[in-house]
Write a protein that binds this DNA or RNA. Structure first.
Length: 314
DNA sequence: AACGCCACCAACCGCCTCGAG
DNA sequence: TCTCGAGGCGGTTGGTGGCGT
């Protein structure tokens, strides 16, 4: 028998959140900050389990979340990253700071899978196989490269924090950096983010009162408001993935390069994976970190072939 | 108008990881 | 070293609304 569900206690409410619950949760987090989710239900009186509170916050109420339609760029980026990283939605979401992993996952399952399937069937061997190659090559690339991508990302984070950069959230989405909320060197940022939460409350109240029938429109305006609130207050919404150039460079990743890697190489690499944080070519990371719009650098990282990377690492 | 089908997405479930004790 | 619990993550489910018949 598996473990009992965390929320099967009597009296624990399930299902959609009401605006009242949202307001209570946002108000509490505004006051105490996210974290310590175990205490949230008891301190707020919400009849929800801690997990449900955390998910509601991270997937819906958290400031800076962009909702509504995915742009063409975002779409392509997701396709590319999925081919590269597999179904590691959290990792993919870290490259799309305004989107949650849940959103991306849903969008992939409902839109992109079908779209790609259709594309494959329409274009026959050429395009379809390219994608297939992309998928298969990503598998050939193996676990080590997926970990490498994650490690590079984490190395950036560590380096950024170590250097106490002024604008860490430019590069690392707050989604994956809960510490941002209580960053000791940037108290104003915390308040600005919570200001966005206040806007969320306003929006919730607004929607609640209006009960607008047009869900999509509501979501879009909401996202605009939240996004504007965050970016205008601190200018923190510029990210490594948001510019056209950067996206294009990312998208220009060539599957063919990866194809040249044999399964044998992968096996060896997996077995001897070193401490990436200390051995990834530092100049690339530095450039990536310090140049706000560093498309070329981004491209370098993404285009880094396995052989080159391995040479640098071993 | 009533019904069925389908798409979408918020929320849940359960496994995994990691840090504290 | 081991245990336990909080939080993170990916897969899945269920409610809802739109559309066609």
């Amino acid at each position: 028998m598996g473990r009992p569900p965390c929320c099967d206690k009597i009296g624990i409410k399930k299902g959609p959140w009401t605006p009242e619950e949202d307001i209570i949760l946002v108000s509490y987090i505004q006051e105490h900050g996210p974290g310590n989710w175990r205490l949230v239900p008891s301190n707020t009186g919400l009849m929800r389990c801690s997990k449900s509170c955390r998910l509601r916050w991270t997937n819906y109420l958290r400031p800076g979340i962009k909702r509504g339609n995915f742009t063409d760029h975002e779409e392509k980026m997701i396709i590319h990253l999925q081919a590269l990283l597999g179904n590691r939605w959290a990792a993919i979401a870290s490259y799309l700071p305004q989107r949650t992993d849940n959103d991306i996952k849903n969008y992939w399952n409902t839109h992109l899978k079908k779209k790609l399937k259709k594309l494959q069937s329409e274009e026959g061997d050429d395009e379809g196989n390219n994608y297939e190659k992309g998928n298969s090559c990503s598998q050939l690339k193996g676990q080590w490269e997926r970990r490498l991508q994650t490690d590079i990302h984490m190395a950036k984070q560590a380096l950024c924090e170590a250097l106490s950069l002024d604008k860490p959230t430019q590069i690392f989405p707050e989604t994956k950096l809960p510490s941002t909320f209580s960053h000791p060197t940037s108290p104003n940022k915390t308040s600005s983010l919570y200001a966005s939460s206040t806007e969320n409350i306003a929006r919730l109240l607004d929607n609640w009162m209006k009960k607008s029938p047009n869900k999509t429109e509501t979501n879009c305006s909401m996202s605009n408001m939240v996004t504007t609130g965050s970016s205008s207050s601190e200018g923190t919404q510029s990210t490594v993935t948001c510019t056209q150039d950067q996206f294009d460079s990312l998208w220009s990743f060539k599957y063919e390069r990866s194809q040249s890697v044999s399964a044998e190489e992968n096996t060896n690499l997996v077995e001897s994976k070193p401490n990436v944080e200390t051995q990834v070519p530092l100049m690339l990371l530095e450039n990536w970190l310090f140049e706000d719009g560093a498309p070329q650098c981004n491209e370098d990282l993404m285009n880094m072939s396995l052989e080159e990377t391995a040479d640098g690492l071993f």
